[in-house]
Simulated scan of single mutants.
Amino acid sequence: MAITIKDVAKKAGVSPATVSRVIADNPRISIKTKQKVREVMETMGYYPNFQARNLVANNTRTLGVIMENSAALAFQNPFFPEVLRGISTQAHDSKYGLYLSTGATQEEIYQEVVEMVQGRRVDGIILLYSKINDPVLEYLSQSSLPFAVVGRPYKNPKSVSHVNNDNIQTAKETVEYLIDLGHQHIAFVGGASDFVVSIDRMQGYKQALSEHQISFDANYTVNQDFIQGNEQDSIRRLMALEVPPTAIVTHDDMVAYEVIGYLEDLEIRVPEDVSIIGFNNHTISKHLKPPLSTVDISIYELGLHATELVVEKITDESTPPKQVVVPSRLIERGSCRRL
């Protein structure tokens, strides 16, 4: 037979109302009473019906997590499990559950967000990407639901709570690292052009070249929009230039793995013939041959701080939008060499 709140109250020598207030962590209940009631709950194996409590309180104790594409595709990229680890840690500490988006297309994801908001399925939302003219972000900005973005919102970033790296400066420093190694012909293999992180890293790439009096050459840039399905041919064309690059900066480590594979097919060695560096510092990167030089963008902290921002807004609606910059650091390994 299930233990009830009345059973706990009787055992603890308090009223059922007091037990309810202890469960809600009401500040009017003394620490001594809370400790006594919680010990009785644990001894008797009583677990509060949080679903019923949440219905009464008009909240769900749940956070929505929106990925940039379907969960099946997202989890192929190690970024998402790691950022979810940060989200889960903070959500657990704040006693929130998670509701992951499951839509397979942009339209399905948008509709899912609308249903989350209008159906009050979640108390807040964490958006794990930022792109140009994103209907999801525009909808959330017009709603009253607390939310935060992992990444820099393209429009009016100060009006939206978000957590980000300084991707312009980090990309600039990454290219300068290669320049310091003696490289002058540096290629950039970027992500999709409608994602803000891709735009910022390209800008940092251009800034580094400009400040070191190296002319920007569009032939040295490869964009995911144009190579979709033709990745190998794009790398082959890049390396067949009259003056091929001696170093390549890639959008993330996953792209670097692919590029290294294509270079092997072309019998081009890393780092003897071309140096390569990625972003995100995935666990497998240090186990490659050669180990991949990369930029650690503190993925776990991105998720952790984004969750903090949402929970803070849920707790206090008057909290103004906040922006948090998470540090990055270059990790030198064996995939880059000095000329």
Rank of each mutant, 00 (worst) to 15 (best):
Y139T: 11
N58F: 10
L178K: 01
Y110S: 09
I186M: 01
I3G: 11
Q224A: 08
N280F: 02
R338V: 10
P16L: 05
L98N: 10
I23Y: 00
H282Q: 09
A171I: 09
P153I: 04
D123Y: 12
Y110E: 14
R120D: 13
V14I: 03
V150C: 04
G64R: 03
G103H: 09
V189W: 07
E115T: 06
Y96H: 03
V259T: 13
C336S: 05
T105V: 11
S298R: 08
M41H: 08
Y110F: 14
P157F: 04
S210V: 05
L266Y: 12
V163T: 05
V311I: 12
T60H: 11
Q35D: 10
P321I: 07
K206W: 01
R237Q: 15
E301G: 04
P290H: 02
G204T: 09
L302P: 07
G64M: 12
A104Q: 12
V19P: 11
L209R: 00
I132A: 04
Y96L: 01
I268R: 00
L140R: 05
D194W: 11
H185T: 13
R237G: 06
I297D: 05
T221W: 04
K313C: 13
N49E: 08
I331A: 00
L140I: 09
D93S: 15
D233N: 09
V40Q: 08
E211V: 07
P78I: 04
E308C: 02
E82H: 06
K34Q: 10
Q142D: 15
V326W: 01
M116K: 07
L128F: 10
